[in-house]
Write a protein that binds this DNA or RNA. Structure first.
Lengths: 198, 198, 198, 198
DNA sequence: GATGAATGAGGTTTCATTCAT
DNA sequence: GATGAATGAAACCTCATTCAT
């Protein structure tokens, strides 16, 4: 009995997902250049041919990881947060949500956060053009300004504050990944918020 | 008559230094794997042969950059600081010294700081064994504990605080490098110290 | 639809065999170090990449030549010989069989014999550990001892006799190879057996 | 006080000798291609420059080893032998002399014999033309013929006998070198002479 | 859709040789 | 005579990518 269209579709998607997951892990752990596609195919248990069937090349695979895995994850993570509240609550909520993910036993959370911030803090690679970057950064700047106007945050330059915050989180994700679950002590969100408060 | 030992020594050192400087820049800007030795030799204006005359290979070149350029620079940077004072002053002094370097027009400062922290926060590469790591981290832990005992710092877990601090600084150096001198707004050390204070 | 396993297997084996044959010839004619893989690939009409697809490196290629080409050949050559007879007949049979091969027009025979004895008489290279050596030597010792007990062989030290015999044969193969088919006068097996007889 | 001409001469010769000795050992142990001149200079404790001051290159160094070390040694070894006696006595004397050297504790003896025979049995290298080869071989052929006429040797083809003899000796030297002094059991010259006798 | 053989450009490394002093 | 720094061609090896089936 031949498979239905849906079944084919499903197999297809599973295969693509396997490749993306393997690629995600490896890109995070070793960095773009150190990854070789042999490892990816081995981990995803597929042939070179198939990988190239789905992705035009290494670059596009990387982009696909970002667009299919990382960005949706970040959106989902932040989707429950109300941006109507006072700025300090918004930022605190975002921070708590992200730290919760970083602390999670499942490392994948940290991978995605790390990759996301890595892209947003880097002026770089081939993807620079393909990727409209910094939306998160812009949003954060607005929130900080609002927080200052609302009288909650200190008067340091807003750029400084935003960069500090993002750098810190990226650093934490990086450290979480490379130091392992057990040895990693995640700072409380309150510690971090102190940077912003008056 | 052969050249004197001193003459050889001097030629040697100059050439080695040139190579190390080039390598330092490239390792920081592109990461270990993305660097190819052609670039290094081109930048250092020497042949492949010479590079291999002085360094056994890419690995060893990287290690030499760390040991000859980065570690001494960090030591020098911190050497004026008195560790006799109260812990909060020590840490603040260290922080100020490091931020001053990161803010400097000369990018090299940030390179070295970035590489140093990268190694110390990474459970890593081939150098893991060759390198007794984490001495800075250990020292920082002690200082934080002392600061807590002296009643200046909050009671958050000291590991958390240390990792946060180092991650933040590394992130700043990274951002400074990749975002360029002019666009980079370095946070004031007071902002950062807030993470520690009660 | 992918190629069947059998098809792949066949392509693979043909190509591998071509490479091994080229490598065998070159290793014998020039020695391990003088061979460069360019020659091998040119002779086997394949790319560098393919060679490395099948063999991890030069070392492994050499080992594969031994294990896939030389050892089986020796086994096959000696397989018809009955080891039940008196020792002097066994050795004489082995000798005749080997000399027949060395005298053959097709040089490949001498290559394999030469390489085999080269390995067995050398306390050597990288393969020392990977290779359980000297089994032929051990066997030969036993046969010589038996021949002495049977009253056919002289009473010289059995080690001396074995080494002489193998050295001689290796020398003949070497000479056959480097002096060419026509100029080579292979000694009669009777001449050689005289070394052993009373 | 300046050195005299003779003193300079002596230093010079000592230096050259050191280089030749190192080269000899390495050429024998590793083969021409596997030797690199760095090893030679290291072993001879001299600079690259000096080596090239005395020898035009690797080829010439090899030739110098042959002409300055190997050939004189062989001549010296055989010089006491009377060629007036019956052929069988001449050959036996030569054989005894050579085996005595191969058995000697000092490995150098075997090195030189091995290299000498290697050249004479090989149709080869760059030196083929530079080197009038085979004089020993020619001489041996004459002796064998004479021995046959004198009724002592068997009637096997004289070429066969000569090649067997030289191959055997070369094989022994090779084995002696690579198997070590202690494990090597040198065959008695009588064993070998049996190949020739009626 | 799927396979893995095959390619070749380009990276890393080695080493005979030259050279200024 | 003597040094060792310097060169560059050529070796070894890797890996993104293509291709026939």
């Amino acid at each position: 009995m031949p498979k239905t269209k849906e079944q084919f579709e499903e197999i297809r998607n599973e295969r693509i997902d396997k490749i993306l997951e393997s690629a995600l892990r490896l890109f995070v752990m070793k960095g773009y250049d150190a990854v070789n596609l042999d490892e990816v195919t081995k981990e995803a248990k597929c042939s070179h041919g198939l990988l190239y069937h789905y992705f035009k090349g290494k670059d596009e695979l990387y982009l696909a990881v970002i667009n299919k895995k990382v960005v949706p994850y970040i959106k989902e993570t932040l989707q429950g947060i109300s941006f109507e509240q006072k700025a300090k609550y918004v930022i605190h909520d975002v921070l708590k949500e992200i730290l919760k993910k970083i602390k999670a036993v499942d490392e994948k959370n940290s991978w995605k956060i790390y990759l996301y911030l890595n892209i947003h803090l880097q002026k770089n690679l081939f993807l620079s053009s393909a990727q409209e970057k910094m939306p998160m950064f812009i949003k954060l700047l607005e929130l900080i300004k609002r927080g200052q106007e609302e009288g909650d945050f200190n008067d340091h330059n807003e750029d400084e504050l935003a960069i500090s915050l993002l750098s810190l989180i990226k650093g934490l994700a990086f450290t979480r990944i490379h130091i392992g679950y057990k040895r990693f002590k995640c700072p409380n969100s309150d510690i971090i918020m102190k940077m912003l408060y008056k």
